[in-house]
Simulated assay, not measured.
Amino acid sequence: MGRTQEQRRAETRALLLAAAADQFANKGFHATSAEAVATAADRTTGALYDHFGGKEGLLIGLLEQWIEQTISDLTRSLEGETDLDGRLGALWAGLIRRDSESGDAWLLLEFELWLHAVRDPEIGTVGAERFRMMRAGLAGGLEDWSEEFGFELPGPALDIAAQVLGLLVGAAFQYRIDPTAFPQPVVVAGLRRLLGLPSADGATLSRSSAPTSKPRIQAGATP
């Protein structure tokens, strides 16, 4: 059966976004023309302007798409992890896997989006909202984990989420240049410090080992 107009438009939009992500990451936003994106997507420039209004619209579209993609990636990374260190490691592994699966383009595009967001108020507004949603989602997850594994967050959940996000993205930028600088145990240890937890020393908090009476683990205490 033939595809509907809505399906064809959705396909064109997806192809243009994928082409823009690749072109912007590898060549830079300003060095990439709308025509180059359209050609890479095997679509017309008119189709690009119809869907997005231009390159800036493509950037906004990418930011909005990545809000959903980030949530999906994190959910997939955490599936099946039943101990705290496993989940902290999965946060990191999700970023690294995403960069690898996208041909190392994710981090390059992330930086390109950030550069343009700080220079363009409209893009900056969308970018700021994207980070607000990421912080809020992560804060909710951290609160759930503190209840599940019986420890107390060392500060407001939103503040801790911002710090965790900062560590993960900052580590990813360094990892992109020198993977040996940030093996997963180093990242997990840093995340434990942010959560006010002692060094794991080979032990992890799991649902089965978490205290049933919900006493809180304070920074420097022994789990």
Score class of each variant (00 low, 15 high):
178 D>K: 14
133 M>G: 12
189 A>R: 05
138 L>S: 01
167 L>D: 03
141 G>W: 01
162 A>C: 08
112 E>G: 11
83 D>H: 06
168 L>T: 03
154 P>V: 11
152 E>Q: 15
116 H>V: 15
161 A>S: 10
107 L>E: 02
199 S>R: 12
159 D>V: 14
164 V>R: 01
81 E>Y: 05
190 G>Q: 07
130 R>F: 10
172 A>W: 00
121 P>C: 13
132 R>K: 15
174 Q>E: 15
127 G>L: 06
202 G>E: 06
170 G>W: 07
108 L>R: 12
83 D>T: 03
101 E>K: 11
170 G>Q: 08
162 A>H: 08
89 G>R: 00
161 A>K: 03
174 Q>K: 10
178 D>C: 08
86 G>H: 02
144 D>A: 15
163 Q>P: 00
178 D>W: 08
135 R>D: 09
198 P>T: 10
190 G>K: 06
153 L>I: 09
164 V>E: 05
163 Q>H: 08
78 L>Y: 00
177 I>L: 15
89 G>E: 01
94 G>H: 05
110 E>D: 09
82 T>E: 11
171 A>K: 01
174 Q>C: 04
163 Q>A: 10
135 R>H: 10
105 A>V: 06
134 M>P: 00
97 R>L: 08
127 G>D: 10
109 L>M: 14
141 G>F: 02
177 I>E: 15
115 L>H: 15
185 P>D: 06
93 A>S: 09
124 G>Q: 11
139 A>C: 09
146 S>D: 09
161 A>T: 03
109 L>C: 11
181 A>G: 14
201 D>E: 11
93 A>F: 01
104 D>Y: 11
157 A>S: 10
156 P>G: 08
184 Q>M: 11
111 F>A: 13
121 P>Y: 13
91 L>I: 01
132 R>C: 05
171 A>N: 05
190 G>C: 09
116 H>K: 15
121 P>G: 13
204 T>N: 07
120 D>G: 13
99 D>C: 05
120 D>E: 15
151 F>A: 04
87 R>M: 06
138 L>Y: 02
187 V>D: 00
194 L>P: 06
